[in-house]
Amino acid sequence: MYKIFIYNRPSRIVDNMINNIENSIKQNNQISNETLNKLFEDNKKPLKYTGKTLKYISIFQYNNSNKNKEELLDTYPKLKNAKYIYPDIKELNSDLSRIGYISNASSSKVLVNKNSTWLIRIAYISGEYKYIINYFIITCFVIYWLLFGIWATINVYHKVGYKFGWTVSFFVFNIFAYMLFMFKNKTKI
């Protein structure tokens, strides 16, 4: 039979995590570290398949906060002030010292429950930008290839006149064609 694969978008995975945390807080006005651990470990791999690396889950509790939901979503409180955090702050600090940042994207939700307001934040490293360096390297290589072909063609023109065959070979084989030209004309490289 045919198997149907459902593509889990990163937002759906993160939204499900936030909803699970929200439900736990609504029921108990708290969340256990075991629950955070399970959520983190269960969703680490599925999120990785979507090009994102899950870094941490942080939950902040504000008692009788005067801020509205939008203001809380715009705040970035210090992780050490989180009521619940997974993985622990020591592990996050080792990541921070190793790579210079912890995450470059996050999803947040504000939950108003009984006498307190909760800010739930799930942070991850988005893989959308990791290919920029590859594109930059490829672009530089193509520019080099073209500039070398132009330079070699001009150089040959000044030495033996314009030869269409050499021009094509410089743009196709680049430095190898130029070395062949130098060998055929007994010129020092």
Rank of each mutant, 00 (worst) to 15 (best):
C140V: 13
Y135Q: 13
K188T: 08
E128V: 03
F136Y: 15
I99M: 01
S94M: 07
I175E: 09
V14D: 09
Y7W: 12
L54D: 00
F181A: 03
I18E: 00
W118L: 07
L73K: 08
S108M: 05
K78H: 04
I59H: 00
K69S: 14
T35C: 11
Y131G: 06
N63L: 14
I143N: 06
Y178H: 10
K3E: 12
I150W: 02
K38L: 13
M17F: 02
Y129G: 09
N68A: 10
F136T: 15
K44A: 12
K114N: 14
K3F: 11
V156S: 15
N37W: 03
Q27K: 15
D88G: 06
N113L: 12
K69G: 06
D15H: 04
E34N: 15
K78G: 02
E91F: 05
K52D: 08
L180V: 13
T35K: 15
Y101I: 00
K109D: 02
K44C: 12
I59L: 02
K163R: 15
K83C: 05
N113Y: 08
A105E: 09
N63F: 13
K38C: 10
I59T: 03
W145R: 04
Y178I: 10
E41S: 05
Y49D: 11
N23Y: 06
N113T: 07
Y86C: 05
G161R: 05
K3N: 13
I120E: 09
F164H: 10
I143W: 09
